[in-house]
């Protein structure tokens, strides 16, 4: 039950932070966009939250469902 709640909370945080206001906080400005490791920060942001959400789904699918 605790694991179920934990995964749900992480997934919801990813859903709100990923496409939500979090994206606007890390992208920099249009004059000086953030570039991390040679890659636009916003692209890495999309990939990161996608991986977080998929990890939650895999964890739920393999242990809870």
């Amino acid at each position: 039950m605790r694991r179920s709640w934990l995964l749900t909370v992480i997934f919801l945080i990813a859903l709100v932070l990923g496409p939500g206001p979090g994206a606007a906080m890390i992208d920099g400005t249009s004059e000086a966009p953030n570039i991390w490791f040679g890659i636009p920060a916003l692209y890495l942001w999309v990939v990161f939250w996608f991986l977080v959400m998929v990890t939650c789904i895999l964890a739920a699918a393999l242990t809870l469902w």
Binding site: G18, P19, A23, P40, L42, V46, F50, M53, V54
Partner: peptide, 13 residues
């Protein structure tokens, strides 16, 4: 640009 890519996060939902 990159902003529309954020729509992809609807797929895990």
């Amino acid at each position: 640009g990159i902003a529309p890519m954020l729509y992809a996060l609807n797929l895990p939902v």
